[in-house]
Design a binder for these strands. Structure first.
Lengths: 138, 138
DNA sequence: CGGTATCCTTGGTGATACTG
DNA sequence: CAGTATCACCAAGGATACCG
């Protein structure tokens, strides 16, 4: 029936997208890396002394992150082999997360992006003002 | 009143977060750069011959992107001065988006990240398998 | 301290249709 | 062709409370 046209097309589109993801896994990985929290966590870890930090220190260093996202992101990073999780079974448990060599290599790139952001922020800001003023003048 | 404790705390937290954004605009910019579509669009544009592409070519080159997201992302990039929008008023209107020098400098960094993703994908994949097998063995 | 489980809101995202 | 506008949806993300 024609009633299922939209649904069918939708399913088809989703299938095509999934197929794309399988054929182009790089895009998948790139999307993961391009995650907001991944960038912040990895660069925070990269700036740390020993490339390692405690869970709560990370939470403090990255304002605005919830426990959930912190844990979730760290888990996925651990799964991807970018960080390692070291548990010290003292009385108050201590957990450290440390960048692996793989993670460090990514960390270098991400911190260069971060540095770019720092260096060009005022420039971007100026462009925004210009753009907004032009829009307001309409 | 005690009844508004949760709401108050929430508002306070939001305020603190906004304050953070103002004090640390770099994070804001970093979050914007770390957008999924920003990465894909900028690197697509960076790989183009003249660093410029037509709207519909971009849509075709980046599978899975909707018109909405494409337009929206391009607008924000234009606002930030990373791309320019050039309209050729022919009969079927032709619109080209081109990376600015600022955008190109970011494009270099993002494509290095993309290259990293390509080079290390199998490594990450291997880590994932190991991790998943360990989890399944529990 | 370092999580996990639960609920709930928000907004990102896509489908559709319409304009110039 | 290149948008804009609207709706509808679902999953990401945050708040909260509870374990080890």
């Amino acid at each position: 029936m024609a009633t299922s046209t939209a649904a069918a097309r939708r399913e088809e589109a989703r299938f095509a997208y999934d197929a794309f993801l399988k054929e182009c896994p790089t895009g998948q990985l790139l999307a993961r890396i391009s995650d907001k929290w991944v960038g912040l966590i990895v660069s925070a870890l990269g700036e740390a002394d020993d490339r390692s930090m405690r869970y709560s220190d990370l939470g403090r260093k990255i304002p605005g992150v919830s426990q959930k996202m912190l844990t979730q992101t760290l888990r996925s990073l651990e799964r991807d082999g970018l960080v390692t999780r070291h548990v010290t079974p003292t009385v108050p448990v201590r957990v450290d997360y440390r960048l692996t060599d793989l993670g460090s290599s990514l960390g270098c790139l991400l911190s260069s992006v971060k540095i770019w952001a720092e260096n060009h922020f005022d420039e971007v800001s100026a462009h925004r003002d210009t753009y907004d003023r032009a829009a307001a003048a309409s």
